[in-house]
Design a protein around this nucleic acid. Structure first.
Lengths: 289, 289
DNA sequence: GGCAACCTGTAAAGATCGTTTCAGAGTAAC
DNA sequence: GTTACTCTGAAACGATCTTTACAGGTTGCC
């Protein structure tokens, strides 16, 4: 397997052509590679026991413009090393006519999902699953202009798995009516990504005052609702588009649905069976494949 | 096994206490951790889109004397990481308390996305994008019981990018009214995954009779509507859950939105700007981060 | 609607850095 | 012993960086 040629190789290949002081420096670099090279030139020189011009000279000898360029290269290498995702996009098949735009979009989406999972605290996921599994707690959901579909998706599935789930209307003027019913047992699930919506922040504040728990799905920067929320899920949303991607939010939502269903399996199965019967009688649906 | 507390944890723990600009910065740091923090403060600030004092302030907020000390800590961490053998840096870090169920779910979801992209013919994607970009063609969208959120999502974005987009109501008894307006220029986008819905099949047949184009988003097995559809996207939907995952459908939908927007960029931008102004006048939204 | 508190960037100061210059030390050849 | 050459670091330089001070802008509260 081919490893990309990195600065380390450059140094090793040129050991023969190095002067004594340069070798001291090369040794210092390799013994704490690549981080040693990411300090200031002064500190690196001191650590290696040489002078700063020696450092510049070595950088030049390796083919760089100066120490700065040498360091930039090192930094890029380090960055690439750290960026190994846990779940990978498979290799793109050769000779596919995919537009580069599509590829970029897919890559970005995979990245977002990875980083979202990475950033998600397992305890947070557990806590949210526990809240949503507790049927003694009525659940209310609300989404914003863009995220209303996400709210709807979670609502749609939660409603099948458990009772007492309500999707709040889009129009804020009817929210007070829902607020009336919320108390410290209630759970409000809010979806709010950038272009954070004032109305929802107000709703969250009022909900909190009534003692309800708040679960927030937001972007990497975080909606101001975070101040009131008990549990926050930060999803990465940036893609090469004018719009944000809510794919990562959906992933977590779907995983939550699966988890909640598992936790209350017996009750859920009964509900689902009843639902099956109801659909059966309406003949609206075709048989399962 | 406990992982030593590192700066990353410090940032994550304090996200709640961060100001908007600081969050931008935190995101930049986390998105290329830890190497992003090893640049000069100027470059880091630029990359994050904030000013240098903001960087200093964040470093202080995290408990460091200043940026330099912050960076030194980061460098030590990076050095320690690199000194560990490669094998130790596992994909799914052992120390994460994720439930195995969550891990399985995530892996299945990634698999679905990979296989969906693999199976998607680039020409199909192109054709659909072309259809949706053509404003001479009115677009109608309809989703099923589960996929209605996906239809809504696509509708929501398409409506911003172009005129003449309609989301059909859930209740089939009003569909005939929409049918009246459909002709050979029209495009019907149908979302139908298993437990394929009879009513939608009927709707698709009737639509086809009127000469309209039909785009179908379905699962790996294929809805019977495929018979009438001009373009079919097969998304993999199986996950370890009683429910199907529509994540792959969403990925393609999002990519389509981006593509359509690119194709009619000039017109789309104008629409978006107008929309911005409209939102500006209602003070419902907060400033962009 | 007005006031206080907070947030954030501009600009300037002072520190550090990267680079260059230059002179001295070392070495090999004759 | 002299000469020519290479190697090396001290010192000085502008450039860049980190930090600080300050002021404009926004938000939240009464």
């Amino acid at each position: 397997m081919k490893r990309p040629r990195i600065v380390k190789d450059l140094i090793l290949e040129n050991t023969g052509a190095l002067t004594p002081a340069e070798r001291l420096l090369a040794d210092a670099l390799l013994s704490d590679y690549p981080v040693a090279g990411l300090q200031s030139i002064t500190r690196l020189a001191e650590a290696a026991g040489v002078s700063t011009p020696t450092v510049v000279r070595l950088a030049r000898k390796l083919g760089f413009e100066g120490f700065s360029e040498f360091q930039d290269t090192l930094r890029e290498e380090a960055s690439a090393q750290f960026k190994q995702p846990m779940l990978k996009r498979e290799r793109w098949p050769e000779n596919r006519g995919d537009s580069p735009a599509f590829r970029d979009f897919a890559e970005a989406a995979f990245n977002n999902l990875n980083r979202t999972i990475e950033r998600l605290d397992p305890a947070t996921f557990d806590d949210i699953a526990a809240l949503l599994s507790d049927t003694a707690r009525p659940v209310y959901l609300i989404g914003g202009r863009i995220t209303r579909s996400n709210a709807d998706y979670l609502f749609n599935h939660l409603q099948i798995v458990r009772p007492n789930v309500t999707l709040l209307s889009q129009s804020s003027n009817v929210w007070p009516q829902y607020l009336l019913d919320m108390d410290e047992r209630s759970v409000l699930v809010v979806f709010d990504i950038r272009r954070y919506e004032r109305d929802m922040a107000t709703l969250a504040a009022l909900t909190k005052e009534r003692g309800a728990r708040i679960v927030l799905f937001t972007d990497q920067w975080g909606s101001p609702i975070g101040k009131h929320a008990d549990h926050v899920v930060n999803a990465m949303v940036e893609v090469p588009s004018s719009w944000d991607s809510t794919l990562a939010i959906n992933l977590i939502a779907e995983a939550l649905i699966a988890e909640v269903q598992t936790r209350r399996w017996d009750e859920a199965r009964e509900r689902i069976e009843q639902l099956e019967d109801l659909f059966q009688s309406t003949r609206t649906f075709r048989r399962l494949p």
